[in-house]
């Protein structure tokens, strides 16, 4: 039979070990909980990213469709009107008749074509928003990426305000498109000082 002192030693050590075990178990549980939380947050972020990417893809597809419609419009409408004007001129040349009525008809046709062209031009960004008279586009083929610098002498704007406003969708679009291609875009602008956009896109 053990002497009382040994029993006390054993009990003290046992209690200490049990307490130590409880402490370590608590730390492991805390660590495991934190890991699970981080993993869930990462998964949530991945789902969010995938959703945003899909949303962006859909937006770009819609834009693509819009641009196709614009080019279709140019081809089918403005092109047809100008061709018709040319035919009218040919007929007049062959008949050698330069009546007021025919001239008026051609003038109307060309006027309609101009109006249609102006409407299409208005739908393009820089011309629509910047009120610029000069746009310079530089493309630099760097070893690992393509750098596109676009500079205009337009009216400029406050970048932070424009990006937070709903009206800044075009600017957001530039940033998103660059991000989608694995690159980045920087927009620098000040009111009355024009706008510079720098886009870096990796080759692969």
């Amino acid at each position: 039979m053990q002497d009382p002192q040994s029993q006390i030693v054993v009990i003290i050590i046992a209690i200490t070990i049990v307490l130590l075990f409880i402490g370590i178990l608590f730390l492991v549980m805390i660590w495991s909980y934190n890991n699970k939380k981080l993993q869930m947050a990462r998964e949530k972020q991945q789902i969010q990213d995938a959703f945003e990417k899909q949303l962006l893809q859909s937006r770009l597809e819609i834009q693509e469709a819009t641009l196709n419609a614009v080019s279709q419009e140019i081809h089918d409408n403005v092109g047809q009107l100008l061709s018709y004007a040319k035919v009218q001129l040919n007929i007049m040349e062959q008949q050698a008749t330069w009546g007021q009525e025919e001239l008026h008809a051609i003038k109307d046709t060309i006027g309609t074509a101009f109006t249609a062209l102006r409407n299409i031009a208005r739908s393009l960004n820089i011309l629509k928003h910047a009120a610029a008279t000069r746009v310079q586009i530089d493309m630099l083929y760097l070893p690992e990426q393509l750098q596109i610098n676009i500079h205009d002498n337009g009216k400029g704007f406050n970048v932070a305000t424009a990006l937070t406003n709903k009206e800044g969708l075009g600017l957001q679009n530039i940033l998103n498109r660059a991000r989608l291609m694995g690159g980045a875009a920087t927009i620098i602008s000040q009111p009355e000082e024009g706008t510079s956009i720098k886009i870096n896109v990796p080759y692969a």
Partner: peptide, 19 residues
């Protein structure tokens, strides 16, 4: 957790020469 028992009983262990 470890010292709660050991230091809490320190006086006792010293008096009874717990080795």
């Amino acid at each position: 957790l470890i010292t709660l028992v050991i230091l809490g009983l320190q006086q006792y262990m010293q008096d009874h020469k717990v080795m």
